[in-house]
Write a protein that binds this DNA or RNA. Structure first.
Lengths: 118, 118
DNA sequence: TGTATATATTCAAATAGTTGAATATTATAA
DNA sequence: TTATAATATTCAACTATTTGAATATATACA
């Protein structure tokens, strides 16, 4: 008795549940990007970028356009950006748990220190 | 050099990336529910429901209210429902990949057959 | 206090996702 | 046709998540 529709929704969120993939979507918000552009922007190796792209592609979240040997990626449905915006809003409304939040604040504090010392 | 903010966002989507947890959120949309009510509505055992609730709770997606020995759960931020709505809209716009879509249609067709035979 | 009810946690086995390295494919240009 | 550049796929080791079963905790009530 599989709840097929919920399964699909879960698959969709799974595709978003990875920091690199989120970063890719954020970068694609501005405009389409080739794999090598993404490599540069994300500071990752070719294989890593391609692998993450293939996850997003498998869920039809991104689409491709070929030009010569380059492949340009873009987000298929702009509603994805609305989704990310709402996620950010929820996030700002203190979604994360206290433990994580404290950790995060420590990290930010350290960064600030480093900057100030310089 | 951890992309901390993206990590947190990924954690958030991970919390949603499970069919039972999505179902729980959909059920909680109507009103708060106790664990045993959720058990009934989802047709799962107590332990399974509690475990999934603990995942959602760990990310501050749901909150609790105690009354006697019962614990009532509700969604902390109604924006979660907006998020689910947008996810559904993206989904309807043919998010799923063709292979999955075909499978899904087969399943629906089988269901329809069974109903018709009766 | 003891017992029943409701919920939470723990644990180990199974499954799934991630990562880096290596290799394969595809298109273009020489 | 061979070489090169760009991208994709595969594989194995590692890490994380899921699942079911067992056990623990907490509240109420007799």
């Amino acid at each position: 008795m599989p709840n097929t529709l919920q399964d699909f929704k879960a698959e969709f969120f799974k595709a978003l549940a990875h920091p690199i993939r989120i970063k890719i979507l954020e970068v694609l918000r501005e405009s389409e990007k080739s794999v090598s552009e993404l490599q540069l922007l994300l500071g990752l190796d070719q294989s890593g970028v391609s692998q993450q792209l293939s996850v997003l592609r498998a869920k039809n979240i991104i689409v491709t356009r070929k030009n010569g040997t380059s492949v340009y990626y873009s987000v298929r449905d702009p509603l994805i950006f609305d989704l990310l915006d709402i996620a950010r809003a929820i996030f700002n409304n203190n979604l994360i748990d206290t433990k994580d939040l404290l950790q995060q604040l420590e990290i930010e504090a350290e960064k600030a220190e480093v900057v100030n010392v310089k």
